[in-house]
Simulated assay, not measured.
Amino acid sequence: MDQPDPLKAARPQPLGLDLPLGRDAAAVRRRIEAMEHVLERSFTIPGLGRPVGLDAVFGLIPVAGDAIAMAMGAWIVWEARNLGLPKWKLLRMAGNVAFDSAVGAVPVVGDVFDFMFRSNTKNLKIVKKHLDRHHPETRVIEQ
């Protein structure tokens, strides 16, 4: 009888995430969902009850923060490209990221905008709609 490896069981997963590394549609979907969660809904602002993520936090850092947030949003578009989304959907997703980055770069107004406009959530919806249609086996029923 196989016994579990005690070293493997004792190793905690970073941030409690066990993300798949595969290139299959289900693995890519889970990675995109995790990135969207980190960028848009990581924690809730006390008193407001509004979930925010690293996208809004990075937006508070002049220049470099907006570039980092844009790169992380672009990663979602890159993963969508690996799924085989049509070019028009990829352009729409890239437009969401570019619009968020351009307006987010404006001092003060951009910081408020980052709390309201969720480009990564919009891009996740585009990916989910595509996957639900072309790869229905990746669908997850949320309770």
Rank of each mutant, 00 (worst) to 15 (best):
A71C: 02
F58P: 01
N120M: 05
V108D: 01
I141T: 09
A34V: 11
V77D: 08
S101R: 03
M70L: 12
F113E: 05
G65A: 11
L17M: 11
D66L: 04
M35D: 08
P62M: 10
D24L: 05
R29E: 08
A9W: 04
E36M: 00
V112R: 03
L85A: 10
L17Q: 13
A10R: 14
P107I: 12
V140M: 07
F99N: 02
S101N: 04
A71L: 12
S101W: 10
M70I: 00
Q3A: 12
P4N: 02
G22K: 15
N96E: 05
G110F: 10
D111Q: 12
A56T: 15
P51A: 13
E36W: 00
R41Y: 00
H134G: 06
I68P: 00
G59W: 05
Q3M: 12
L124E: 11
D132K: 13
F115C: 13
V57H: 02
K128E: 14
M35P: 00
E137H: 10
H135T: 07
V108S: 11
G59M: 10
I76Y: 02
F113Q: 10
G104L: 07
V38T: 13
F43S: 13
G16T: 08
K128G: 01
E137K: 08
V112A: 15
T138I: 14
M1N: 08
R118C: 06
A94V: 01
R133V: 12
D100W: 02
P107N: 08
A34Q: 11
H134W: 07
G47S: 07
L85N: 06
A26M: 07
L21I: 09
M70Y: 01
M93K: 00
F58K: 02
P6V: 13
L60F: 09
L124M: 13
A67N: 07
G110C: 12
N96R: 00
L21M: 06
V112E: 01
R50S: 06
R139Q: 15
T121S: 11
I61P: 02
E40R: 04
M70K: 00
V52S: 03
N96K: 00
V63W: 09
L48R: 11
H37E: 14
L124R: 11
E79L: 15
V63T: 15
M35Y: 02
D132L: 14
I141M: 05
H134Q: 13
V97M: 06
V106T: 13
P6Q: 04
R23K: 14
E142A: 04
A80S: 14
E79F: 10
D132H: 14
L39M: 15
S42C: 07
I61V: 15
N120E: 02
W78E: 13
R11A: 14
V57M: 12
A9F: 03
D132V: 07
A9E: 11
P86N: 09
V38Q: 06
F99M: 11
A102V: 15
F58M: 14
D24C: 02
P20F: 03
T44A: 10
